[in-house]
Write a protein that binds this DNA or RNA. Sequence first.
DNA 1: AACGAAATCAACCGCCCAGCG
DNA 2: TCGCTGGGCGGTTGATTTCGT
Length: 322
Amino acid sequence: MGRPPRGEQSRMKKGPWTPEEDIALVSYMQQHSLSNWRSVPANAGLLRCSKSCRLRWTNYLRPGIKRGNFTVHEEKMIIHLQALLGNRWAAIASYLPQRTDNDIKNYWNTHLKKKMRKLRNSRDGQADDGDDSTDASQSTVPRGQWERRLQTDVQTAKQALHDALSVHSNPIKGLNLFDSNPLPPASPQASTSEGYASSIANISRLLQGWMKGHPNSAKNGPITTPCPKNFVMNSSYSSEDHDSNMFRRSFSFSSDASLSTELQNRNNLAHTCQTSLSFRAGSSSAQTSYMHGKEEVPAIRLFEKWLLDDGSMATPGLDGIW
DNA sequence: AACGAAATCAACCGCCCAGCG
DNA sequence: TCGCTGGGCGGTTGATTTCGT
């Protein structure tokens, strides 16, 4: 990618995003269909590089992101998937659509890696040697496991592609993850799955943090408070402080916007799928493994059962962590 | 209360790849 | 075919927060 001109680069702002910037970006993203990220900073009035905007949006501001409070089930899935796929966080994140690859990566590095190391040490009775040999990407994977990884890659890719394509015939499928309803559930019981952070909640969070530290609240840093399960608009918000129109815009994602986001997510998934397929393209054994018995469907079912079944078919050695 | 160490995580960096002219 | 560009990915950094003494 071409390096931006020196002058332009120096004018670009770096570091933590302010609530004002977040609102500007969210507001822009809500009103415009995304054609290319390069035009976003200028059009949204941000002194950020396009990459920074994309990252901020995909990792923190876009609708349907759940942050913090990883469940035991999610932990297990991450560990299983990491063992299978290695540090391919985007692929792992595709199995946890509420989570971003960055979030999963951070969680792995700060929590799970340590947990795994502890487990290994207690099992082997060895002192911590500090290496990360539990990482599939760095370990010498036994042939059987490698083949299973390979098959999983292909199946993951196929499934992702299938999902990505099927959205056109059934756009509602899977949309519970990206609820188009701008209003939060009326009661805790109304929320089907456990706490899902909508865009509304994301913006609420940033505004709450903004108000807590406003003005010049940089010291408070990014808002990391977990989202409430059922967001209630903060009644203490004063429209005198900020542009109330912008506020309203930020809190009213249209279903179209949510749908386009979902479509893009699925397109991204399809891209991951392509990447995944090409990843092993040079391997003849990949073909052998994939074609074996023409049993793609049972294979993915088995894998998903293994993956999603809480501990019943857990990876040997992982039981007892929780 | 004060200080340093450790943990956390948002954001950046650099590389890679696909698409396009 | 080649060079350029936009976008995606994984690794790393560094500011901030939390914990222990």
